[in-house]
């Protein structure tokens, strides 16, 4: 139970790993159709995650999905795996306990902008600092959707929400830079329309030994889109590409659709900081060796 889960590097993933993907193998079909609104980007993000999981050949029995509260928190429910729908803002803390106790599990956290950056902000920075082998997928739809559309830490300036009737005046968080500054070993960001890229970024994050933070720019078509005239569902999805600048995959630097010149997509950080779980277990081995010596 104590051996650590290992995964394929990007180079080792074959075309077949990626191609033979049937999403329904990974879903709890009796719960469908899911509860999300028409056009909600979270569904696309979920596909990318499951595809990455498939490409990595992760055994569903060994997969633990930990989520918080909000629309993002409900996404995990639909995955046919060990799913934990925990409390608001705390999935990273739950996941930390779970991963430390069960290093053989692949622990993936699904969280949202409010869950991860507002109520759970402290857990994000400390999970990043610890660099424990967890993959954190933050679905950023720039709004509190489930509670009816209140302003969130990533709501762009001047957006109308139910709690900013005159437009948002608060500045936003750049979650990736936050995670990077706090020490996350792997940081990436992608929009949902670039599904294959998103899949690859997640797949690499899953394989990364350490804390991987992936921000998915997702559309909230109902409460965010409608209130701000962001267009129909397809228009919102397309809106993501319009402002994208194509470039080579790995070092692409692309302006964020809603915040020109401030946000990049792609893999933003890859470092080889020590993974906390491994360091901890090494310490345990040393302590136990010393103890045995003492007993002899």
């Amino acid at each position: 139970m104590n051996e650590q889960a290992t995964l394929k590097s990007k180079e080792d993933m074959t075309q077949d790993d990626i191609r033979n993907f049937e999403i329904r193998d990974y879903l709890r079909l009796d719960l469908f159709p899911h509860f999300m609104c028409p056009g909600c980007g979270h569904g696309i993000a979920l596909r990318a995650l499951l595809w990455a999981i498939h490409a990595q050949g992760i055994d569903k029995d060994k997969l633990a999905i930990v989520s918080g509260i909000g629309c993002s928190g409900r996404v995990g429910t639909y995955i046919d795996a060990n799913t934990y729908h925990t409390t608001h803002g705390r999935p990273l803390a739950f996941a930390t306990g779970l991963k430390m106790a069960r290093p053989d599990l692949h622990v993936v956290v699904i969280t949202g902008d409010g869950d991860c950056l507002a109520i759970g902000g402290n857990h994000l920075i400390h999970a990043a600092r610890r660099n424990l082998d967890i993959t954190c997928l933050m679905l950023n739809n720039e709004i509190y959707g489930m509670t009816g559309g209140q302003v969130s830490p990533t709501t762009p300036a001047d957006r109308f929400t139910t709690t900013t009737p005159a437009g948002n005046m608060e500045p936003v968080f750049d979650a990736c830079r936050l995670a990077e500054a706090a020490g996350a070993g792997y940081v990436g960001r992608e929009v949902t329309i670039h599904l294959p890229r998103l899949r690859d970024i997640i797949a690499e994050g899953l394989a990364y030994k350490g804390f991987s933070f992936i921000e998915v720019m997702s559309d909230c078509t109902e409460v965010n889109g409608r209130k701000n005239d962001l267009g129909s569902s397809p228009e919102m999805v397309l809106g993501q590409t319009r402002a994208m600048r194509p470039s080579e995959y790995d070092n692409n630097v692309v302006d964020h659709p809603f915040r020109p010149n401030s946000m990049n997509t792609g893999v933003l950080v890859r470092s080889n900081r020590p993974e906390y779980g491994t360091s901890y277990r090494n310490m345990v081995d040393k302590v136990q060796a010393l103890q045995q010596k003492g007993q002899k």
């Binding site: 633990a64 925990t86 705390r90 739950f94 930390t96 306990g97 779970l98 106790a101």
Partner: peptide, 11 residues
């Protein structure tokens, strides 16, 4: 939260 998380894992 971590305590509950560990217990969910069976410890």
């Amino acid at each position: 939260a971590a305590t509950l998380g560990a217990s969910m894992g069976g410890v």
